[in-house]
Design a protein around this nucleic acid. Structure first.
Lengths: 133, 133
DNA sequence: CCTAAATAGGACTTAACAAGTCGGAGTTCG
DNA sequence: CGAACTCCGACTTGTTAAGTCCTATTTAGG
C-alpha cells in the first residue's frame, strides 16, 4: 500500500489551517478540536514542524503557532520531510545505506521503480502550501 | 512514509522473472532461491497473481508458473491491485466507503492530494511489464 | 508572584498490519 | 503408488504507526 502516515495527514491539515489564518496565532487545541485530531499527537506534529523551522511557536498564555515563510515557499515535500525525518523510498531497494539493495543479488526492479519514485517526489516538491489553502 | 509492501516488491520481481523466461515454466522455489525471498510468502503472492489471472499455475511434478498475457498487456497497477486487493489511496480521505473522510468535518486536503494520487496512479498504470523486463 | 493557558518533549502503551510460518489438501507425472 | 509440485487458509510473530501519559517550561494577566 502506498499511503501517507496519519502524522503527515494531520500536519498537512494543521499547517494549511495556520496558513489560512495568517493574522492569528493558532493553538494546537483549536486545530485538534476543529478537525477531530487527537490533541497530544497533533501537538507532537506541530513541535516537529516548529523544530524544523516551518512554523514558529510562542509559549505562554496567548501562545500558539504561526508561519515563518510565505505559503508559496513551503512545499509539501518540506512538510513530509519535517514530520517523517527519513526520506521517501517507494521500495526497500530505493533506500540509501547498508540495509539497501544488497539483499537481492540482482535487484531487477530498481531502475523502473526509481522513475515512479522520481515522479512522486516531483509532485510533492512542486506542490506548495499556497496551492492548498 | 510512502512505500510499497514487501509482497508487491516480491510480486514485481517474480513476475518480471517469469516474463524474462517466456519459454519456461518457472517454479516458486526457483524464484525464491534466486532472489532470496521466503518461499512460503512468495508462493502466496504467486497464488494471488494466479487467482487474478495475471499468470497461470500448473500443478504437479513439472508444474510452475507462466504468463497468460503479453508483457505489454500487464501493467504495474494490475500487479499491485492483484496483490494488495484494495485500491491505492494516498490518504485516508482518499478511500471509498464508510470509513472515508466524514471523520473530518472539513477535509481540507482532499482535493490537492487527489492530484498527487492521480499522478501516482497514472505512473503505475502506464508502466507495463514489457518495460521492466 | 501566583495561576491559568499554552508549548516541549521523553517514555510508555496500544493497535494495526505487514511479514513470515505451518499443516494439510489437491494435482500431475513417471 | 510416490515424489514433486502447487494451493490455500489459519496461525504466529515482528515491526511500526498511532495514541496516551506525565512532567517540565514559558508567559500573559490579575
Amino acid at each position: 500500500m502506498v499511503r501517507l502516515s496519519k502524522k503527515v495527514e494531520y500536519g498537512l491539515i494543521a499547517i494549511r489551517h495556520i496558513a489560512a489564518h495568517p493574522s492569528d496565532v493558532v493553538t494546537a487545541k483549536e486545530i485538534a478540536d476543529k478537525y477531530q485530531i487527537p490533541y497530544e499527537l497533533l501537538a507532537k506534529v506541530l513541535q516537529r514542524l516548529s523544530r524544523e523551522g516551518l512554523i514558529t511557536s510562542q509559549q505562554g498564555v496567548r501562545g500558539g503557532y504561526s508561519l515563518t515563510k510565505n505559503p508559496n515557499e513551503i512545499t509539501v515535500s518540506m512538510i513530509i520531510n519535517a514530520i517523517e525525518g527519513n526520506s521517501l523510498a517507494i521500495a526497500q531497494c530505493m533506500t540509501e545505506g547498508p540495509e539497501s539493495c544488497d539483499v537481492f543479488n540482482v535487484c531487477t526492479i530498481k531502475s523502473p521503480l526509481s522513475k515512479v519514485q522520481a515522479n512522486i517526489e516531483n509532485a510533492f516538491d512542486t506542490m506548495t502550501l499556497a496551492q492548498i489553502v
